[in-house]
Each structure stands twice: as structure tokens, then as C-alpha cells.
Nucleic acid binder design. Structure first.
Lengths: 213, 213
DNA sequence: AGTGAAATTATACGATCATATAATTTCTTT
DNA sequence: AAAGAAATTATATGATCGTATAATTTCACT
């Protein structure tokens, strides 16, 4: 008598990992998928395959896939902000040097990078329809603006020029940075990283000359 | 003898339209779907339903769905640029009034609108993985920059101040506008339309004061 | 009024999607 | 070494996806 179901798929071996480690692996796999295929790369199967696990694991750790995407967003978001702030704090403790370091960090190879910015832009489009991601973005944005606000008002105090509304002015510099990121991401030939730095420095020069008083 | 297939679905009535009209209807339906659900709204079935036709019509007119999305992008893209340029040309023919009209148009209710900008941001994320849309965006972007370039150099000539690199400076103003659009789209409480105008005017004031010379 | 081109619908097909459930493996704790 | 918790896999299910094909309807033209 023959076996009725002769070919039972052998179960794959696996390593057991802590929820934190596995979550991070899945989050990073999600980022790679988004980079490779944009929104089309956001699927439980694709991300699981990229991470080298089965799809069930995503539901196990995140419940639904939207949670994983939001987690990946936080991962990247925190990484970028931390990197910029770290470089700012590594600068000499003068307002001039600190603000300039913030600008230079924004155009440094680790951040001003096609892969990073492409992923970033895709996230922007996802934020709008995810309350969870929208909440993350709001706090992250306000953290950005707060940081710039401090840098700008320190510079103004140090050099003795006036700024009518520091928060709005910080919004403007942040917007300029984001806008340059976007422009370069969609059209890398439009300008070079050093051009971006120069344009931000010119913006700061306008500030110095009282254009925002 | 009974009928073998008694319940044959009655075929829907329809109006016959020219390819151009139908294409535009489908394009506008696509825009509404993108607004409502973001990238998740981009599907032949959903767009066809939104337009009140069957899905086959999309393949008939566009071949594949990506073509329809690209067409919708062009539709919106052209609309925005045309509106801004029209308002610019409607201004008094002085460099000051024209540049200011460009800025004001960028924050006018027809363009600086949550629905419009949300759709716009979703497109940014789609451009990256669509060569067809990327090509459209590149020419559209260069058209934007060219327009701003003209406005800026006219102003500089008229008022007698210097701009080191007009093209790069135009890239900066364009980036500032896009960045403010993005910021306000993701975070409408960050500032009001008139604040956006004020920030652009301050940027121009910096230009006047020689910050980009 | 009739005819023919093409716009449109109806339908089918295979792929992929998200998620739920149960079986299995791993690894820590005892 | 035995056990038990939980991490992981395997599998199933129903929905939706894009697109192809054939049947049908509309409408302009004669």
C-alpha cells in the first residue's frame, strides 16, 4: 500500500528571535521593498520574502501590515532626525557653526541620497491616508521645526538681528530643505549637493540682512 | 421546455463618447480615486466605477492602467501650471507685480487646497517608479523653473540687484514653494496661506538685499 | 432605414492580496 | 532531560487585482 500524500513539504528551519529584533528586521525589509518598488512593494508577502521569513510572521508581530509600514516610517524618520541632530551637536558650540552643521548634515551623503530620499517621498504619499503615520509625522515635523527654531533664534541673538516670527521662519527653512530634497529626488540633474548647501546659506544670509524682521 | 439560463444579466445602457472626452472623464475619475484613497485608490475597477463605466473601457482607451495614471498626472500638472501662469500674466506688467502674482497664485484657494495638494503629494510618490510619469515631471519641473527664472531676472534687472546664478536661485524659490505645499498638506495647522505668502515675500526681500549675489 | 465601425459591456482567467487558523519548531526554564 | 511558552511555518479562504476576449450597443453616415 502506497502513501496517500507522499510529498509533504518539509518544514523550513528557522531561527527564533526576540520580538524587537524581528520587528526591526521586518521594518528594514519593508524599507528595502519600498525603495525597490514604491507603494507597489508594500505587501506582506513581498516584505516577508525580503526578510527571509513567511508572511504569517508579519501578522504575528504587527497584527496588520499597516502597522509594519508605520513602524518602518518611524524607523527611518528617527534615523534621519537623529543623524542631523548628532552632526549639529558635534559642531563647535557657536550659533553660526551649529546652524551651518545642520544645513551641511541635510546634504551629507548619508541623508542626501537617492535611495533615502526616494523612500522618504513614497512615505509622504502614504502618510495622508494613515492616521497612525500622520500622527508620527506631526510630532516628527514639530521636532524638526523646534530644532531649527532654536538654531535660528540663537543666531539672531548672537548677531543682533531681528526675526519677526521665529516659528514661521523655521517653517520656511524646513520647507526649503524638504523642497530641495524633493526636487533633487525627482530630478537629480537639477543641482548638486553643494548647490543645495549654497542655497540654504543664501537663505540664511537673507535672514541676517533683515528680510524676515 | 424551460430556458436553460433563465437569468441573463441585462446589459447596461451606455452613452457613446469620443475618445478624448472619455479619456478626460477617466482621468478625472482617477484623480478623485487618488484623493479618496491615495495609491490604494489606483485600480482599474475603482476608477471605472468612479467614472460610471466598466473596467474594460480603461484597457480600451489606455491599454494599461499605468497610462491612465500618467495621463491623470499630466491633466493635473498642466492645470496647476496653467492656472499659476495665467494669474501671473493677468498682473500689471511690472516685474514686481508679476512675481508677486506668481507667489499669490501659488497660495490661492484654487491651488493651495488640501484636496489638490494631497493628490499632488501622492503623485510625487508614484513618479519615482514610472518612467512615463518621470518624463512628464521633468519637463513640467523645468517649465516651472524657467518661468521663475524669467520673473527673477526681470526683477533683478528692474531693481538693479545681482543674482549669481539665476537658475539655481529659481530652483530655490521653487523648492520653497513645493516645501510649503508639502508642509501644509501634511500639517495644515503649521501655518496659514497668508503666512506662506509672507514667507515667500521675505525670501524675495532677501534676494533684493543681495543674499544671492 | 440600413449598415458598419468602434465604443462599451460582460465575462473569464490566473495572480496576488490580507489575514486567520492550526501545526510545528525552537529555546529557555526548571 | 523534560516541559511549556511563544516564535515561526504551513495552509486555507475569500477578495481584489490587471488584462484578454467576445458579445453587444450606439451612432454617424449613406
Amino acid at each position: 500500500m502506497t502513501k496517500r500524500k507522499p510529498s509533504r513539504k518539509p518544514r523550513a528551519q528557522f531561527r527564533r528571535e526576540s520580538p524587537d529584533d524581528r520587528s526591526r528586521q521586518l521594518g528594514e525589509a519593508a524599507l528595502r521593498c519600498i525603495l525597490k518598488k514604491g507603494t507597489a512593494g508594500v505587501s506582506a508577502r513581498q516584505i516577508a520574502a525580503e526578510a527571509g521569513v513567511t508572511q504569517g510572521l508579519i501578522n504575528h508581530h504587527f497584527g496588520e501590515i499597516g502597522e509594519l509600514v508605520a513602524y518602518a516610517f518611524d524607523l527611518m524618520s528617527d534615523g534621519i532626525l537623529d543623524a542631523i541632530v548628532a552632526r549639529t551637536n558635534a559642531a563647535p558650540p557657536t550659533p553660526q557653526a551649529r546652524l551651518d552643521a545642520y544645513v551641511e548634515a541635510s546634504f551629507s551623503p548619508a541623508i542626501f541620497d537617492q535611495d533615502v530620499l526616494k523612500t522618504w517621498v513614497v512615505f509622504w504619499g502614504l502618510i495622508l491616508h494613515s492616521p497612525r503615520m500622520s500622527a508620527s509625522q506631526k510630532t516628527e515635523y514639530s521636532s524638526y521645526v523646534k530644532t531649527v527654531e532654536g538654531l535660528l533664534s540663537d543666531l539672531a541673538t548672537s548677531e543682533g538681528f531681528a526675526i519677526r516670527d521665529v516659528r514661521l521662519t523655521a517653517v520656511a527653512l524646513t520647507a526649503l530643505l524638504d523642497g530641495l530634497w524633493l526636487a533633487w529626488c525627482l530630478n537629480p540633474d537639477a543641482f548638486r549637493p553643494q548647490d543645495g548647501i549654497a542655497l540654504c546659506r543664501s537663505w540664511i544670509e537673507g535672514l541676517r540682512r533683515g528680510a524676515y524682521a
